[in-house]
Design a binder for these strands. Structure first.
Length: 561
RNA sequence: UGGGGUAUAGCCAAGUGGUAAGGCAGCUGGUUUUGGUCCAGCCAUCCGGGGGUUCAAAUCCUCCUACCCCAGCCA
């Protein structure tokens, strides 16, 4: 899976389009990705993006980027900019200019007037609370608004006054006249326009009334000639309304809405509302905090666009929303990084090793490929000196069975260098190990030792050439599988205490030239990414742990108890 | 209790009347100067449950159960 883009899995939407084509309905496929600019995009949006852009690409069609900007109170230009960047970064390009539902406000207004003229819409003066009471409940029908039978002339006059700014926020709304007894609550005279004296990021102060989602979305699709309007399952109940507008308005085309299940992943949340809360509460440092499942957070963490696309292909598209194991996301990530990331060595928890049979001051410049299977990625130089650092996890004074690493009297291979044996363990007064005195076998560089097998290989960094590096170790934000499934416990209660720990590590010298966002596999440790903002080449090295390597040894240890 | 949906392995997911794809995870071995990668093999007599139709059912009918969404002037 690492090299060729994964073959896109089949899904019911693709099948539907294929069937439509076989049936001779040769319409051009035009989809759209319609985010509201009220927050950052997350992994769930990535699924929708891959679907919409993927479908368009596969069938030789177009995919528009359209901001569903009908609620200026919650939206901003900053979110628009971030969303555009995320879509591009994921590897997609929309057809034509970026579009805005607000581009269609004038047309929408005219259509609302059409509805009034046809006796299908009216201005209602019920306040929010009354409106709720008149709406009825899930099991009881609603009752007609006392304003329902106003004359067309009066409705027209009132609606124009609404637009003119004659009324304060919330004073009146324009509603469709459908059926207050409909079992589907969305059909109980839904709101078309509400009064909001609020500057809009695109239209400025031109409007003080704004159309609702329902009155905007389908018609925007129709204006753009969208053939397949794909959205998530919670809009299924809105489809009759979506169609009602298309059937009662002189729209140029008749798009069809199809719903699919939204993405859920365990150990995280994929709800813009909850992610916003994490940001607002200061739980994370921003929408693009590397712990966030936002696209920009994943990017900063070190995820590749390809890994996200592959993941979306892997999980499929259907209508039976389940919960995807985050392990699948990690799998998609590791498969891509295994192929694309250069290798390097970095010691997280240093312990000093002195090579006793190495002459004082001698430096050997070893060379090692940047990738074990990709010569074209070049080589880097590894200075070998008398004093080195290895990871303290790679040494045990009293090793258990099958511990292939360093232990007193035991031999181990230093990756890309010689085999060494631990001869002596030096401790301080408190009994802490402060140094390992080892001897190297000079006849083992690039070849196996004579007459014996050394199975273990550990990574190391020269103590005299190693570079200090700040390493940010990230883990799941939540410590339970479904942080938001418990109705009685707030999801913030499930936050993990150690989703981030910062350690000072020692990096091999070649890492001095790493650029921000460069990704590496620190051998035997994991995949890391130079921080997009804080990393300064040659000055301040900052690496984010994207994901660890699979750790079979940890698994064995667990089994052994 | 109204309306709309969904149920295939621990997880994701194909399948649309002809006898259960694939992936993740897991388990066995092999290769390996990353306990990584890679390679080989194993992993649903069964498709939420009960009836029924049929030579034949995960696929059709029927009853039942569980779970999800809807009562914002949010999207």
């Amino acid at each position: 899976m690492s090299q060729p883009e994964m073959i896109a899995a089949t899904n019911f939407i693709r099948n539907m389009i294929i069937q439509q084509r076989e049936a001779g309905q040769q319409q051009k496929v035009i989809t759209r990705f319609p985010p509201e600019p009220n927050g950052f995009l997350h992994i769930g949006h990535a699924k929708s993006i891959c679907l919409n852009f993927g479908i368009a690409k596969e069938f030789g069609g177009d995919c528009h980027l359209r901001f569903d900007d009908t609620n200026p109170e919650k939206e901003s230009q900053a979110f628009i900019d971030a969303i555009k960047e995320d879509v591009n970064w994921l590897g997609f390009e929309w057809t034509g200019e970026v579009r805005f539902a607000s581009d269609y406000f004038e047309q929408l207004f005219d259509w609302a007037v059409d509805l009034i003229n046809n006796g299908k819409a009216y201005v209602c003066e019920l306040n929010a609370e009354q409106m709720r009471e008149y709406r009825g409940t899930l099991t009881e029908p609603g009752t007609n608004s006392p304003f329902r039978e106003r004359s067309i002339e009066e409705n027209l006059a009132e609606f124009n006054k609404m637009r003119a700014g004659d009324y304060p926020n919330g004073a009146k709304v324009l509603r469709a006249k459908i059926d207050m007894t409909a079992p589907n609550i969305n059909l109980r005279d839904p709101i078309l326009y509400r009064i909001r004296h609020q500057e809009h990021h695109q239209t400025g102060n031109k409007w003080c009334i704004y159309p609702s989602y329902d009155f905007t979305h389908g018609q925007s699709d129709a204006i753009e000639g969208i053939s397949h309007s794909l959205c998530t399952l919670e809009f299924e109940d809105h489809r009759p309304l979506y169609e009602w507008f298309l059937n009662n308005l002189p729209v140029p085309t008749k798009p069809v809405q199809t719903e699919f299940a939204r993405l859920n992943i365990n150990y995280t949340v994929t709800s813009k509302r909850k992610l916003k809360l994490l940001v607002d509460e200061g739980v994370v440092k921003g929408w693009d905090d590397p712990r966030m499942p936002t696209i920009s957070g994943l990017r900063r963490r070190g995820y590749t666009p390809k890994s996200l696309r592959d993941f979306c292909d892997m999980i499929g598209v259907n209508r039976s929303g389940g919960v995807v194991d985050i392990g699948m996301l990690h799998f998609a990530l590791r498969s891509d990084l295994e192929h694309s990331a250069k290798r390097a060595m970095l010691v997280l928890n240093p312990i000093k090793v002195v090579i006793t049979n190495w002459e004082e001051g001698r430096e050997e410049m070893l060379s090692s490929p940047s990738h074990p299977a990709r010569e074209e990625l070049g080589e880097r130089t590894l200075p070998f000196t008398k004093e080195l650092y290895i990871d303290s996890n790679d040494f045990m004074e009293e090793p258990p069975k099958k511990f292939f690493r360093l232990a007193p009297g035991q031999e181990v291979r230093l990756r890309n260098a010689w085999v060494i044996r631990c001869d002596e363990v030096i401790k301080d007064a408190a009994g802490n190990i402060i140094e390992l005195r080892c001897s190297h076998d000079p006849d083992t560089l690039g070849k196996n030792p004579e007459g014996r097998k050394v199975k273990g290989v550990i990574h190391w960094v020269s103590a005299t050439h190693g570079l200090p590096a700040e390493v940010r170790l990230y883990d799941n934000l939540f410590q339970v599988e479904s942080p938001d499934s418990d109705k009685d416990v707030d999801f913030l209660e499930h936050l993990s205490a150690d989703s981030l720990s910062v350690v000072e590590a020692i990096a091999e010298p070649s890492l001095a030239t790493a650029q921000a966002e460069d990704r590496f596999q620190f051998e035997r440790v994991g995949y890391f990414c130079a921080d997009r903002y804080d990393h300064q080449p040659g000055t301040k090295l900052v690496f984010n742990r994207t994901v660890s390597l699979k750790d079979t040894w940890a698994k064995i240890q667990k089994k052994q108890g």
